[in-house]
Amino acid sequence: MTDSPLLGHAPKRGIAALPGLVSDTTALTKRNLLMFRRVPQLLVFATIQPIIFVLMFRFVFGGAINVPNGSYVDFLMPGVFVQTVVFGAVGTAIGLAADLKTGFIERFKALPMAHSSVLIARILSDLTRNIFVVTLMTSVGFAVGFRVHTNPAQFLLAVLLLLAFGAALSFIFATVGIMVREPETAQAAAFPVMAPLVFASSAFVPVESMPGWLQPFAANQPVSAVITAVRSLVLGGPAVSDVLIATAWCVGIVAVAAPSAIWMYRKAV
């Protein structure tokens, strides 16, 4: 196949297409990140809300909650970290739904670009947002008395686990966003799914304080699994099996949600 000035360029395939994939992903990730500056409300939802939770539970409800050992704020913060990435993942749904609604993605479909870059860039920009938000929440935690009882390496591992969980959830919410195609609907559709996962978990109260019928779910669902692992990593104690379980959840979610997101995206327009 020859390239003539009028006929444009035939896109490359296979390994030769990699530079295209990288540059397309870079361009789209930059654009997604620019949105946080242009539409600050996107970040407000992801930051103000967890800060309010921290203040509320630390200073209002915390005194009434008994935790097995140590202080409540040390128990609380790992829960808030996980809550933050769970609620943040809705942003993935909102972003993709908005791009479908404006017809931006339909335009992409007719462009000689690497189409997988749309999903990859969305996951990457939401990962970047999570790094920012988790850093912010860590500072807030330190400000209200939270302390890491292990070592920096284990804390870093906890952060990586949080980010991995956030990225895994992004695939679920990418599927949701493509399905509903309306940013407002995406937000509304996500809440009833997320609320039980976040609140019927060990995030704010010990699972043992819940009614017996709820305990098996609350103790074993993915959000609790990740919280437990993060707690073990930052507060001390045997962490290996907790981390393995949490990692297994991340891998399992990606294994199911990534193909479904890709399939939905292919079908979307």
Binding site: P11, A110, P112
Partner: peptide
């Protein structure tokens, strides 16, 4: 298709 996309412009 990828080759066609390099040749077309679309305004919806």
């Amino acid at each position: 298709a990828p080759s066609v996309r390099g040749l077309i412009g679309l305004a919806g």
